[in-house]
């Protein structure tokens, strides 16, 4: 099974004017890495999810995500935005953006890794480690170490 995240899916200097632009930037990384087959199709799915309810969470986190037929394998793209991107959280813009791509009808082994990831997202240590990680390889390392399916 391919890795949930690799350094090529990390953007530590995510500079985007809004959440759609930020999502697009990260999704482009997934397309380049062969994890997503159709950029616009995938973005439409993410957007549909986002419109149901914004995915911003307290503590400066945004988690745009979708189950999409354009996703090959469950993958996380991670962006860190020094300026912040508004994902609709009450307490302000998101500095950490987790774009979670899940294949449509993925088997449960696939989905378990995403469930484990989601559970780590509520951990402050986890997000703080990501916030202070010096480079993309460190980010990918933290995620791979911390996210272990139960």
């Amino acid at each position: 099974m391919s890795e949930l995240i690799t350094p090529e899916f990390v953007d530590l200097d995510l500079d985007a004017e809004d959440k759609h632009a930020a999502t697009r930037r990260l999704a482009e990384l997934l397309v380049a890495g062969g994890r997503v087959t159709d950029l616009d199709g995938f973005l439409a799915d993410v957007r549909a999810r986002e419109e149901q309810m914004s995915t911003g969470l307290p503590g400066g986190i945004g988690i745009p995500h979708a189950k999409s037929m354009h996703v090959v394998t469950p993958t996380l793209a991670f962006g860190r935005s020094p300026a912040g991107v508004d994902f609709g959280a009450d307490d302000g813009p998101a500095r950490l953006v987790f774009l979670i791509a899940a294949p449509d009808g993925g088997d449960s082994e696939h989905l378990q890794i995403l469930a484990a990831l989601a559970r780590r997202l509520v951990s402050q240590e986890f997000t703080e480690a990501l916030l202070s990680a010096p480079d993309a390889a460190t980010v990918a390392g933290i995620v791979m170490r911390e996210v272990v399916p139960s």
Binding site: I63, L114, A115, A118, R119
Partner: peptide, 14 residues
């Protein structure tokens, strides 16, 4: 939650 891959598990953990 609607998609069932993120918030569901975050809420469970929290």
């Amino acid at each position: 939650c609607p998609t069932g891959i993120a918030h569901t598990y975050m809420a469970a953990e929290a």
